[in-house]
């Protein structure tokens, strides 16, 4: 399955969520489907999308935070899984698009192309709810279930090594950051 098919399948459910993505193809593809003020695209700082998600989760406890991560990024910050598991935060759905590749940097294999099992790492780290998906239907069902469960979830989506590279809009980094921040703070005031 392709990542953008997964994103399209759950896009309507992202409307009311606070969403943090990693850089590269995930950010570009989500933006190409349609940017919203509740989407923050973390350009650079690889590995920290889930840490930002955790900071949001403990600050906006009434919201569900969706983190759209990747295998390369998560491998740079595996400790985040044990931090999340023991943080007490339950309002995070941490999606990991695993394409077994540092695709944006020229398609070099990551450790998941060999034997590293990120769902297994998440489970062993103490994440209370984990799942894997290998089809768009499985992903859609698992994502909906994660949102409904109210449990801290890591969902690994096994996707093809494909992506797009042209930025779909001229949205600037700081424009995105301040728009997103204003949105989050409007949620905090409600």
């Amino acid at each position: 399955m392709n990542r953008i098919e997964c994103l399209r399948a759950v896009y309507p459910q992202l409307e009311k969520r606070v969403v943090v993505t990693i850089m590269g193809a995930v950010a570009i593809e989500l933006q190409s489907i349609g940017h919203r003020p509740n989407f923050f695209y973390l350009q650079h700082a690889m590995g920290l999308a889930s840490s930002i998600g955790l900071g949001l989760a403990v600050s906006l406890q009434e919201q569900r935070i969706v983190v759209l991560d990747g295998d390369g990024s998560l491998l740079m910050n595996l400790g985040t899984l044990s931090t999340l598991a023991h943080s007490g935060a339950s309002n995070i759905v941490h999606v990991v698009f695993d394409n077994q590749s540092y695709l944006s940097a020229g398609d070099s294999p990551t450790a998941t192309a060999q034997s590293t099992d990120l769902e297994g790492v998440a489970r062993a780290s103490g994440i209370p709810h984990t799942a894997s998906a290998r089809s768009v239907e499985e992903f859609q069902t698992a994502f909906a279930s994660a949102l409904d469960s109210g449990k801290l979830t890591v969902l690994v989506a096994h996707v093809d090594t494909s992506g797009v590279y042209d930025r779909p809009t001229d949205l600037g980094l700081l424009e995105n950051r301040f728009q997103f921040s204003r949105h989050c703070q409007s949620l905090a005031r409600r």
């Binding site: 840490s51 900071g55 949001l56 989760a57 931090t83 943080s87 921040s181 989050c184 905090a188």
Partner: peptide
């Protein structure tokens, strides 16, 4: 929040700041 490595602290503080905390 007890972290495993200090890099995480920067992300956590960023998330909190975005939410006004």
């Amino acid at each position: 929040i007890r972290v495993a490595k200090e890099e995480e602290c920067v992300g956590i503080s960023a998330g909190a700041h975005f939410a006004g905390v």
